[in-house]
Design a protein around this nucleic acid. Structure first.
Lengths: 229, 229
DNA sequence: CTGTTAGCGCATTCAA
DNA sequence: TTGAATGCGCTAACAG
């Protein structure tokens, strides 16, 4: 009897006892599928991440999973692998799965996918990316401040020749950090040397290129602090 | 019409066209919940891992997710955090979710949980742990050979004083590796010095203790190669 | 080839 | 307080 399991209706102790005993004997496990169909609610949240296999994102997904678990929700972790195609396929899957909500950590331009979710009235939380004109929740880090503080720290340490390496420099969180860093430089009255800003194109493998650029910088004359965003 | 979607019944082009058009207009997404209830099959596989947030396990879960995805299955990643309680809670959840199968990467003694799954006829795949008397699939690495080859390599390099650090030394994959390593030593006619085998108790934080033990070994006199399992 | 129907397991009515 | 009936959206079986 559903009333015993959910405890949202008055039930006599006698009946409850008999039902519970029967449940144990039959090794009965409530069918979450049928319940989801009836209640139109699945207690599951889609979590889209560029790659689970990454220290920062792994930490992020872990804490999300842990929190959802504690609130009796299940996280459907979806590794998009930076691919918009896979993200789209996963969105379709989550739509069919009738998830109660979606948390997105997008790298690519996922606007259309977000719109598809909203059209089906599925709440969306965006991490570290802005979609100001859409009714979604945002979780944003103080990127500008981070960039500013980081650069400021190096300046306070006495460094003056500070180069900047950035990937995805045209996208939201990074552009903010860069702006913060550049502003810190400007506020300290340090000349902005264009050759000190090295960007990595999005298509390139970021790790290797970052390494190569760093090596190049270190080959330059003078003492230089490095700063990677 | 389900026949159009699934394409497993003959349908005229005319009807198919009309149905497809209607689907687009209504922004129809097949309800996987209802389908799962009807078909008694959910196209989802539970994947239990001690921690997603770990380089080796992260890689493992990533490749599993990728493979399942390609086969139109969804991976329900469950991070057990080395806790038997959380593993048990997840097993119950997967049981209720009616997953089509479970892949387990257990650290703790998960025998009972495996038995609960089998009792409901859910296929189980065990990674790197043996449960010989249970009808489960096993995926095992050649641990003995790995330990043997590793030790053999150091011996071939000319080292003679070789210490061994191991956590969970009493559990399956590790004990195999240790046996392999010790056999390699014996086969090379090297005396087994008991103080060369350092174990880490399972309760301890493995990383820090491993580091401390390694430092201790390095303080010893003589040239010693280190070997961690 | 196509329309109709029953039932998957549950939660929520409505009666009793 | 409890039993019985309905329908969530789908697919498989059965007619047509």
């Amino acid at each position: 009897m559903s009333r015993v399991i959910n405890g949202n209706y008055p039930v006599s102790d006698d009946l409850r006892g008999r039902v519970q005993q029967a449940m144990e004997q039959l090794e009965y496990h409530p069918n979450a599928i049928a319940r989801g169909l009836r209640r139109q609610q699945t207690q599951s949240i889609g979590v889209l991440i560029p790659q689970v296999n990454d220290s920062y994102l792994g930490m992020f997904s872990h804490i999300v999973e842990k929190t959802l678990f504690a609130h009796h929700y299940r996280a459907l972790l979806c590794s998009t692998e930076e691919s918009l195609e896979k993200e789209t396929a996963y969105i379709e899957s989550l739509l069919q799965q009738r998830v109660d909500g979606v948390i997105m950590f997008p790298r690519a331009h996922s606007r259309q996918n977000v719109e598809r979710l909203l059209k089906q009235d599925i709440p969306v939380v965006m991490i570290e990316r802005k979609l100001p004109d859409l009714p979604v929740h945002h979780v944003l880090v103080k990127n500008y401040e981070g960039g500013y503080i980081g650069m400021r720290h190096l300046i306070d340490l006495g460094h003056r020749n500070i180069a900047l390496i950035a990937a995805y420099f045209e996208t939201y969180p990074i552009s903010e950090r860069i702006q913060g860093a550049l502003d810190a430089k400007r506020d300290a009255g340090i000349v902005l040397n264009p050759e000190d800003f090295l960007s990595i194109k999005s298509e390139e493998r970021r790790f290797e290129i970052g390494y190569r650029l760093a090596v190049e910088i270190l080959k330059r004359p003078h003492d230089r602090a490095r700063f990677s965003l």
